[in-house]
């Protein structure tokens, strides 16, 4: 990936982050912490890696993304809207009565969402089933699954991990959003998950840990995963819950937060400034 492409993906990520902040600012509260930590990975997937057709969301040959940590919906919606799956105006309806953009991602409501999630752990199995189904159909499309580090408390996650490994599903990539926090506090205090790298290796995965804010590292890891045949892949995204917004990072319990106007304005300034910096650099390349 050349520097220009890297900057373009950074710009896409910064735009997703800004739109995500706007969505939650408009609502006044929401799952913003865990939305902001997956932004760079979404930018790489939707900006570079995935085979998709936003005008034909059900295209048979498309790649699939399952956000098992369904509360990251706001980041997914910003990404999908920016890709043209639905009008940007929809982002103002987040969580509101009659919306197509519910708090947790819902296949039946949002174009571009391939699996309904929200009950944690479930996406790991449904994504696994879709990967198996595609393999049986002889399709070369890939499945990208996001799970949370806190979500990994759920036993179902490890049931699915065993299955992926046992059936050698090399068409699925698991991303662990290792942002170190869950609803009640730090993961290591609530339920210490230990070393994700070692855990997934022990479960038979081709496992890599990357800086979850580096589009280049994420991209390179996805490409390396593509080369790993005969086993599933896991990419652990070392991230910060609330990435890009200082006020949010400072809040210890930042899973679902009130987002009053003053804080929202500061956040918008910060993410907009970040976007401008990337654009300026891009203009000089």
């Amino acid at each position: 990936m050349d520097r220009k492409r890297e900057l373009e993906l950074q710009e896409f990520a910064a735009t997703i982050r800004a739109e995500t902040v706007k969505e939650v600012a408009d609502l006044g509260f929401g799952h913003i912490g865990g939305s902001l930590s997956v932004v760079e990975a979404l930018a790489v997937l939707y900006g570079e890696v995935m085979k998709i057709d936003p005008k034909n969301p059900d295209w048979d040959e498309r790649d699939i993304m399952v956000m098992s940590k369904g509360h990251a919906g706001p980041a997914v919606y910003a990404t999908l809207a920016l890709k043209g799956y639905f009008p940007m105006d929809w982002l103002k309806t987040l969580n509101k009565p009659g919306t197509n953009l519910p708090s947790h991602t819902d296949r039946l409501k949002t174009p571009g969402v391939d699996m309904t999630t929200g009950s944690l752990g479930q996406g790991s199995s449904t994504a696994t089933g879709m990967a198996l189904g595609r393999k049986l159909a002889g399709s070369d499309s890939r499945v990208f699954l996001f799970i949370g580090d806190g979500e990994s408390n759920e036993g179902q996650v490890w049931e699915a991990a065993m299955f992926c490994s046992h059936y050698k599903l090399d068409n699925i990539v698991w991303f662990v959003d290792y942002n170190k926090k869950q609803l009640d506090g730090f993961v290591e205090d609530v339920m210490d998950m230990g070393d994700f790298q070692e855990k997934f290796e022990a479960f038979g995965f081709h496992t890599q840990t990357v800086d979850g804010t580096s589009v280049r590292e994420i991209y390179d890891a996805i490409e390396a995963a593509r080369q790993a045949k005969g086993k599933p892949s896991c990419i652990i995204l070392d991230t910060v819950k609330g990435e890009g917004v200082s006020d949010l990072i400072e809040i210890e319990l930042n899973h679902h937060v009130q987002f009053p106007e003053e804080m929202a304005n500061r956040a918008l300034e910060q993410v907009t400034a970040a976007l401008e910096r990337v654009r300026k650099e891009l203009a000089n390349v």
Partner: peptide, 23 residues
């Protein structure tokens, strides 16, 4: 034929995914 081991929750979720893939 797919053996899931003693993991009913995973089996039900994966079945949903497989059905979405046309099976």
């Amino acid at each position: 034929f797919y053996q899931f081991g003693i993991a009913e929750q995973n089996m039900m979720g994966a079945a949903a995914g497989m059905a979405k893939a046309g099976l």
